[in-house]
Computed example of a mutant assay.
Amino acid sequence: MSKRHAEVQRALEEFDVEVALRLVRGHARRGVVSDHTLEAYRTGLLQFFRYLQEQRLTVLGFDRLEAGLYRDTLRRRHKAATVIARLAPVRQLYRALQIEEIAPGDPFAEVVVAKPSDAPPRPYTPDEIRQMLTCPLTPTEETLLLLGANAGLRRDEMLKLTWGDVDLAGGRLRVFGKGKKERSVRISRSLRAALERLREATGKPATESRVLGLDTTHQLVYALEKIVARAHVQWRGVHSLRRAAGSRLHRETGSLQAAQKLLGHASIETTTRYTYHDETHDATVEDW
């Protein structure tokens, strides 16, 4: 056994989180771990090490049965997204230990993390979004689609958006989300064009007027149902427009933090993957 292996084993026996973090960081798949992600990893490893101590288990003696029991413990305490986030650094740790030939295998290799019922609804695919946008639409319908699929707004955020919240010159939407938290969202080129057409069609509406002119969630859902039927795509719900926006931004930038900022999530744990932060995401959204 090498000196390094002996030092790592001793540190893991003492549940040294900083040593575990260095291992995870050193073998990160993308080679880059942001400070934000590192803190999320620290939280996950601290919880795992506390569990091991409570159960009188060890890192290197942990087996597949115990891995399943730990997952079930997390499920009882957290939502599916948090379970995945808390297990991510633990999986990365065992991967690093395998690479360095300190651990013989990954006890979580065959552990299914999320229950099927916990899986979020699928977002509309890029092809489905294109199909909906290319079918005959009113200015209101086009704007509704793009507020969800490009700007990533929630249903209530779409309904409450007023013309006073729209800054076409500055290319920004002022959005009030959960808990009345305010965020600024970049207006994409296609959304800007749709908003201009809608404003012209409604005859220069007052600043306090609602952009979509809809009063209830039922009206919003019904409006999207008609578009989906017209475009012959599968109904996935209004929220899947928002999921499509987040998925697209994450796919195109590789940045989970960019998607978090666009969608106004309070916690990055609502997502299941972590990556570097890309400050150029506003420019990406503007090009949509």
Rank of each mutant, 00 (worst) to 15 (best):
T138L: 06
E279Q: 12
Y70A: 05
L168I: 07
V233W: 01
E18F: 02
E208N: 13
D63E: 12
P107E: 05
R4M: 13
W235M: 12
D167Q: 04
E13A: 13
G203H: 10
Q219P: 08
Y70E: 08
V113P: 02
Y274Q: 09
D167I: 05
A85D: 10
R154P: 10
V185F: 02
V19T: 15
A20D: 04
M1E: 11
H78M: 03
A223S: 15
R56K: 15
L74D: 04
R155W: 07
V221Y: 12
D63W: 02
D167W: 01
R210M: 04
H277I: 10
D127N: 10
Y222K: 15
M1R: 12
V83P: 07
L23A: 08
N150S: 14
D287L: 14
L198P: 01
A283E: 14
G44D: 07
R56I: 00
G31P: 04
G177Y: 10
T280N: 15
F108E: 02
S184W: 12
Q219A: 15
T280F: 05
R4H: 13
F62M: 08
E200N: 09
R189A: 14
G26H: 11
G213R: 06
L147V: 09
S247H: 12
A20Q: 05
L87W: 05
H5R: 14
V185R: 06
L57N: 01
A6F: 13
R29C: 01
Q131N: 09
L256V: 15
H265T: 02
S34A: 14
A193W: 03
R197C: 02
E100W: 03
T271M: 15
K79C: 01
V17T: 13
V211F: 01
A231K: 08
L97N: 02
W235R: 14
L146K: 06
